[in-house]
Every structure is written in structure tokens, then in C-alpha cells.
């Protein structure tokens, strides 16, 4: 009697185990059919970004992985760059108090009169988007924010995406890594 009980239990268990294996394999097949070999990473669509400034505060990293990217092939090389100078400083003294960037991440280099080249120091940039906002208001919109995947932890749910007001964050395939602007 006792032996019977145990074997019945084992029989049911075996059946359920087979059913479970079938389920898992079936699910695997369905998933693999829907899968891609590359990874998904987070990136900002620069045409949707509204420069709210949350990229610098909402990242899980203490220094945000979002950095300002400069497309030289869109830049006007202005002497009076609104992304570089604070509004109201027309003496064009490059002292820290006159710079818009809170960390001084934008470097200015003289090319020829009246053109200046601007480059971003990614180690200093915090992705606040102040320069981006000024450049999209008055300039050629050559400055824009991008997630730098050198720093990004690629969280399963990006904590900036969660709070992005314009749904500019999207998952893109890792082969591309950036969503760059197309020069006009």
C-alpha cells in the first residue's frame, strides 16, 4: 500500500516534470524567435530632447552618463557662442563667471578671425543641457545630448527615461551606439 502511494506520487511528479520541461522549451523557442543577437542600449533622440535638465540629476551614477556631443559639421564657429557665454556678457572675457557651462567643460580655441572652435571635455560634462538649450535657441543646434556608453551602466529600466518629459529616450541596438544629428 505504502509503496503504491510513493510510486503514484512519483508518477504524477514525472508527468508534471515532463510538462514543465515542455513549457520551458516551448517558451524558449518562442523567445528565441523574437530575439536578436545584439544588445539593447539606451539613447536620446536629439530631435525630441527639450533640455529639461533632468539628465544630470536623474541618472543612477553620481556624474551622469549623459554627455553633450558637438557636431563640428553643423557648428557656425561663432565668436559669440551662446552655448559658451552666459547671456549678458558681451565683453567676451572667457573667465569662469562668464561661461554658461557650470563645470567649464566647453573648451574654446581660436582658429582664425572671427572663428572659434568649441570642444567638450567629457570628463567634466554633467549633461545638464544648458549649452544645448542656448545653442538650439540661438545657434545651429550643433550641441546636443547623448548617452555615453563608456559610462552608462545600461540599467534594465533607465532611471532618466522614467522621468523624461518628452519620451526622448529609446532602446537602440548596440551596433549603432549613438543617434547623431544629420547636418543640414
Amino acid at each position: 500500500m505504502k509503496k503504491d502511494l510513493v510510486s503514484r506520487r512519483n508518477f504524477i511528479k514525472k508527468c508534471l516534470n515532463t510538462a514543465g520541461t515542455g513549457t520551458v522549451l516551448g517558451l524558449s523557442y518562442a523567445l528565441i524567435k523574437k530575439s536578436i543577437a545584439s544588445e539593447y542600449i539606451w539613447q536620446i533622440d536629439p530631435y525630441k530632447c527639450v533640455q529639461c535638465g533632468r539628465c544630470s540629476t536623474d541618472c543612477v551614477l553620481s556624474q551622469s552618463a549623459v554627455k553633450c556631443v558637438h557636431s563640428f559639421d553643423m557648428c557656425g564657429y561663432c565668436k559669440l557662442c551662446y552655448g559658451y557665454f552666459k547671456p549678458g556678457f558681451y565683453e567676451m572675457e572667457t573667465g569662469a563667471e562668464n561661461q554658461l557651462c557650470p563645470t567649464g567643460a566647453i573648451k574654446r580655441k581660436f582658429i582664425e578671425n572671427p572663428f572659434y572652435e568649441y570642444t567638450i571635455d567629457y570628463d567634466l560634462c554633467i549633461g545638464c543641457g544648458k549649452c544645448v538649450k542656448a545653442c538650439s535657441m540661438f545657434g545651429n543646434r550643433s550641441l546636443y545630448l547623448q548617452v555615453s556608453h563608456k559610462y552608462c551602466l545600461n540599467c534594465n529600466e533607465c532611471s532618466i527615461m522614467k522621468n523624461c518629459p518628452s519620451n526622448a529616450y529609446k532602446r537602440i541596438r548596440s551596433e549603432k551606439a549613438f543617434l547623431l544629428k544629420v547636418p543640414l
Binding site: 542600449i41 554627455k67 556631443v69 558637438h70 557636431s71 563640428f72 559639421d73 557656425g76 564657429y77 582658429i111 582664425e112 572663428f115 572652435e117 570642444t119 567638450i120 567629457y122 547623448q146 555615453s148 556608453h149 563608456k150 552608462c152 548596440s174 551606439a177 549613438f178 547623431l180
Partner: peptide
């Protein structure tokens, strides 16, 4: 800009993963 000197417009600096 149209540069008179032999300045070449550099590529966008990107940090790839």
C-alpha cells in the same frame, strides 16, 4: 564658416563603449 587657413573640420568626438 569658410576658413581661409588650412583648418579641417574635425569629426564629432564620440566615446564608443
Amino acid at each position: 564658416p569658410e576658413f581661409l587657413s588650412d583648418y579641417k573640420i574635425p569629426e564629432t568626438i564620440l566615446e564608443y563603449p
